[in-house]
């Protein structure tokens, strides 16, 4: 295992300069994710109009893996429909957890997360934001999404 496989340049860049970071006053859904192992918290804000994610931003404090994963996620889902975003959640989840999952080039920059699966203790760091997203998109009451925990 090489640390550079986990901390690829894309990850380090998105950790240092997270995209779509901050509040979103026009959000139609807010969801909170919590990782009790490390105390990291993530607040995800979504504006979904006509089944499409028109805008997404996140706030919170986390490690490089969780920050970069959230930042990459916001880039990837902006403009996608609810169904497309949930399908992407499934593919990223497979990328993070299934040893046999081939590096799917169509995932683009998200492929940078594939190194995480060699570090089992860190999979939750990368998946927290995605579980939070799925919870927000699946909730019938988007304004009161229950907090997501990785435990």
């Amino acid at each position: 295992m090489d640390l550079k496989d986990l901390y690829r340049d894309v990850i380090l860049d998105h950790n240092r300069n997270p995209r779509n970071f901050g509040p979103l006053p026009s959000a139609s859904a807010d969801a909170e994710g919590f990782n009790p192992l490390c105390g990291d918290r993530l607040n995800l804000h979504l504006r979904v109009v006509d089944e499409r994610v028109e805008d997404v931003r996140f706030e919170g404090q986390g490690c490089a893996i969780s920050t970069a994963s959230a930042s990459l996620m916001t880039e990837a889902i902006k403009g996608k429909t609810r169904a497309e975003a949930l399908a992407l959640f499934e593919r990223v989840h497979a990328l993070l957890t299934e040893d046999a999952a081939p590096a799917d080039e169509s995932l683009g920059k998200l492929c940078a997360l594939s190194g995480v699966r060699e570090f089992p203790a860190r999979v939750k760091c990368a998946s927290l934001c995605w579980h939070t997203l799925a919870s927000a998109l699946n909730s019938p009451e988007p304004r009161s999404v229950p907090a997501v925990s990785t435990e």
Binding site: D40, G62, C63, A64, I65, R122
Partner: peptide
């Protein structure tokens, strides 16, 4: 450098 990254 977040503590969790440092631990790894």
């Amino acid at each position: 450098v977040h503590p969790h990254d440092l631990g790894t």
